[in-house]
Design a protein around this nucleic acid. Structure first.
Lengths: 191, 191
DNA sequence: CGCGACGTTGATTTGCCTCAACGATTGTGG
DNA sequence: CCACAATCGTTGAGGCAAATCAACGTCGCG
């Protein structure tokens, strides 16, 4: 809990009232490695805030292959934004990549907090903005970069946790096969 | 102007005060076909609301090729979200695809409105949410679909204006070449 | 130990790109 | 009103980056 409060304090001053309300609506959860938090076809609308460990959201294709949408470590938010913000059933799953600790926050409760405390809404809006910038950047990357370029950017941008993630999942995030990533890495090692 | 008010009214009730303030901060602009509204390297932070016509934002690569990030028609927002929400110079351009009419809204002014009128912030947060869902969906599409599938989804999702856009720009949105799109269309026509 | 998960390597295939040429259409100036 | 250029879409030939398929090495773990 306190980690979230501290995190929010970077942006806004957190009154006791907000803190108390947050305490009420956040559900702390321990996640095991490989454990599923959110599954396909769920209608549950909740945000996830990572306290410890590492998670990822991914899409399972008809042929069984998985595509990673997002990784999240300490102080990051993660969720299925299609389910959260539209009326569609979940098509994503979210799982722990390692033993993790997270906060589950119901969307409706969170929205009540926005209304009651506009400054909290401001805090969250800034998160939205950062998120949109990140997504736009990723789309640009997918549209313009080669496999090698995407990988290089990935390990630069996510230096703090890139080495914690198995390569085949990095590949599924970059939109390439594990085999291709392996060859890219081999090529890079030569230099 | 009134188009924006009407649009906002779909989500929240617009008081006279809000309406008056919006009138003050919105700058209406006529855009010619091919005219550039926002150019690379700009630091101007403004949102654009489309009243009439059609715009697109795009990235110009080193080799001169263009990659389309977004199209926008009546009642859509468009902008360079990396510039808007980070401290980076603009790497995108925004231009009119046809004679258009837009509202330019300064980011800072808009944020003042959020603070002064929390219900307006709510309205804008919902736009953010829809936008995030759209971007997530596009990333999924880029990661999983073939050229033909992407095109089919495009003309389904954007049926209302897909035929107004030249094919080579649709191609640059889908991340394929005009030649490939042409072949995809030829194949589809066979069925 | 033996099994499963992961990464690597090689051989082959393929979807899309590149390059080049050529209609069709539209707009423009003489 | 027509030559002309410019823009856009199409088609063909050839090439390439990455995918696929298959095999094998390594490591961690019950």
């Amino acid at each position: 809990m306190n980690e979230l409060i501290e995190y929010i304090k970077n942006d806004i001053t957190v009154t006791d009232t907000i803190q108390e309300k947050l305490n009420r609506i956040c559900v702390k959860k321990q996640v095991q490695k490989g454990e599923n938090i959110l599954s396909e076809n769920s209608l549950k609308k909740q945000h996830i805030f990572v306290l410890r460990g590492c998670l990822r959201s991914f899409y399972r294709m008809e042929n069984g292959k998985e595509v990673t949408i997002q990784f999240a470590i300490k102080d990051w938010w993660i969720g299925d934004y299609i389910t959260l913000y539209t009326e569609h059933k979940s098509i994503l799953s979210i799982e722990g990549l390692s033993k993790s600790e997270i906060l589950l926050i119901d969307k409706t409760e969170l929205e009540r907090l926005y209304i009651e405390h506009p400054e909290f809404a401001t805090f969250h809006r800034k998160n939205f903005e950062k998120h949109i910038a990140t997504l736009q950047k990723r789309i640009l990357s997918l549209l313009t970069q080669t496999a090698a370029e995407k990988y290089q950017q990935f390990i630069t941008d996510y230096a703090d946790f890139a080495q914690k993630i198995p390569n085949y999942q990095i590949a599924s995030y970059l939109g390439i096969t594990p085999e291709s990533l392996s060859r890219v890495r081999k090529e890079m090692a030569k230099q």
